[in-house]
Design a protein around this nucleic acid. Sequence first.
DNA 1: TCCATATATTTGTCATACTAATTATTATTG
DNA 2: CAATAATAATTAGTATGACAAATATATGGA
Lengths: 161, 161
Amino acid sequence: MEQYNAYSQLLERTARRVKQYAQYQFNCQQFGITVDQWTILKNLNQYADLAQKELAEYCEKDQPTLTRIVDLLVGKQLVERRPHPNDRRSFVVHLTPTGKAKVETLSGQVGTIRMQAWKNLNEADFEHLKRILDTIYDNLDVRKEETGRVPATEWLADKIE
Amino acid sequence: MEQYNAYSQLLERTARRVKQYAQYQFNCQQFGITVDQWTILKNLNQYADLAQKELAEYCEKDQPTLTRIVDLLVGKQLVERRPHPNDRRSFVVHLTPTGKAKVETLSGQVGTIRMQAWKNLNEADFEHLKRILDTIYDNLDVRKEETGRVPATEWLADKIE
DNA sequence: TCCATATATTTGTCATACTAATTATTATTG
DNA sequence: CAATAATAATTAGTATGACAAATATATGGA
């Protein structure tokens, strides 16, 4: 039982390396954005014009973090904030033409970068990983049993398109 | 092939939740330290009096990050910097009696917190997870084929004690 | 020995995660 | 309808991660 103490570091270091590798490739290939900024752009392109709160949920960022990433993307003129039609507290984040072009240009390259992790692994491995990580994720829900929460499994299905 | 784009988010969010859950428990139980600070203390207790560079390697932190975490732990009087016997560039980080007591008090509780992730999973799952994450880790080594690098698998064996 | 290079630590900067608090607006309820 | 509670976004503060540069010291070779 003692050994299970190590999984957290195992997870953390793998996640860190995945991000680090992607960012390294982003830099080498001069994408001009961070990996997290890419996540925002990609989700915006997929779902189009989301309020920041919704965007934060899709991207799995908290709201303060999302605010700052959007600030940076606005600075790079890749997105813009538009008033929300029904709620004056809220903004809708919109991909500029430049932003949309960037998503379309980079999509393939990001896909290639992401594939690199999967060398020497197969479909069954992915299924294992998915099941195990989803189980861990659900095991550690701090706010147990909230209404309307999306179980980990469904969330992933949504991400895969 | 498209789906492999999701594994990075899957990994990241799981790692984040694991840390978030642990930190939440640390806070509830008033441990008075962060999860990363715990990592330092635990490794110090296990290996005793390491130079910062070595400590950083064991804890999988980079050196600037380690310097800052050690600063915080020194502030909490849980560790102290001692001159390195053979190298005046270097410090040895030493657990104070308070620090050692803290490690011993918290070890069991941290173990309990960590185990929570493992509900509904078994030994075989752990082996799968370990193999898959180690493979990914090795797939994404930016500095290919350096001399003396420890393969992921051995690293884990070491962590398990 | 002297010099060039390597190493251990620190500092600085930017990006992100988390928490708490603030502001503006909306929704609810008495 | 008015007071209150809830919500969207922001701001601020702390901790961490990645990377570059600076400093002090060590090491190896001429």
